[in-house]
């Protein structure tokens, strides 16, 4: 009896066959894979340009087999605007963390969305500055201890966690805005679908699309990967509800 191997699971073409350098339990790898699967789904790897940001997200080009431009901290939406306007037929996405997008880069993200730039923005929210060592982020939860909120984030002093997906959904230029998580198989499948939708928004010339992905940072949360994953459902999702906040089907 002969056996034929039928692969049921392969690595996405848009990712390089490299070993991860991210911390154990970090979910950047999962998000990378979902983005790469979306690029493969639309067969746009060869006409995609990624725009990397500052923080752990910068290593985009180490993992994706695509052309990449690196931006200053928070400026990825402005850099991506320049790229998309120069090469309008390319698929352009930014990949940004919470310090990058929701603190130092709030101006750039709001105005890129407001102009309705035909970009896909992948926003990885892990409620902390990962690369710099776990400082308080604009998305840090009330009471959460970080290296710069050692007594816990105090809303009276530090403000409350900022909900970017809801905020950006308010703008006329935003055509798609959603929040997903990757803490369970069901959520990962859902996240894959939403990220695909965010790329479809750009590919079908509908305009600006935004996906916020709730993700772990076990190292800076002081948790093991399992605990960190559990925290997503227990603490993050109650503060950052999952869902699609805006979806406009017509072309812009």
């Amino acid at each position: 009896m002969s056996q034929v191997e039928i692969p049921v699971f392969t690595a996405p073409r848009s990712l390089k066959p490299v070993v991860t350098h991210f911390c154990p339990g970090c979910q950047h790898g999962t998000v990378h894979r979902l983005v790469a699967e979306a690029l493969d789904h639309f067969a746009v790897q060869e006409r995609t340009i990624g725009v990397a940001s500052v923080g752990c997200s910068v290593f985009l080009y180490e993992y994706f087999a695509i052309d990449v431009v690196e931006s200053p901290h928070g400026r990825a939406p402005a850099v991506a605007t320049g790229v998309k306007r120069a090469l309008p037929d390319r698929v352009v996405f930014t990949y940004q963390g919470d310090g990058d997008l929701a603190a130092i880069g709030t101006s750039e993200i709001i105005h890129a969305a407001n102009r309705g730039e035909a970009l896909t923005v992948i926003f990885v929210n892990n409620t902390t500055y990962g690369m710099t060592g776990g400082q308080m982020a604009p998305t840090t939860l009330a009471g959460q201890q970080t290296s710069t909120s050692p007594y816990g984030r105090d809303p009276a002093n530090d403000g409350s966690p900022i909900r970017m997906a809801e905020l950006l959904a308010q703008l006329d230029g935003t055509r798609f805005s959603a929040r997903v998580a990757v803490d369970s198989p069901r959520h990962v499948i859902q996240a894959g679908r939403v990220i695909r939708e965010a790329f479809a928004t750009q590919i079908q010339a509908r305009g600006f699309a935004f996906v916020e992905v709730l993700a772990t940072c076990p190292t800076n949360w002081g948790m093991n990967p399992v605990q960190a994953n559990q925290r997503i459902a227990a603490e993050l999702i109650p503060c950052f509800p999952l869902g699609t906040f805006k979806k406009i089907e017509s072309q812009s």
Binding site: I49, V69, S71, R75, A78, V79, T81, G82, R85, E108
Partner: peptide
Amino acid sequence: ESEIAAINMLLGASAC
């Protein structure tokens, strides 16, 4: 929206 955004748009177009 700002001088900062403008120079970074230039960076993006130049990178192309």
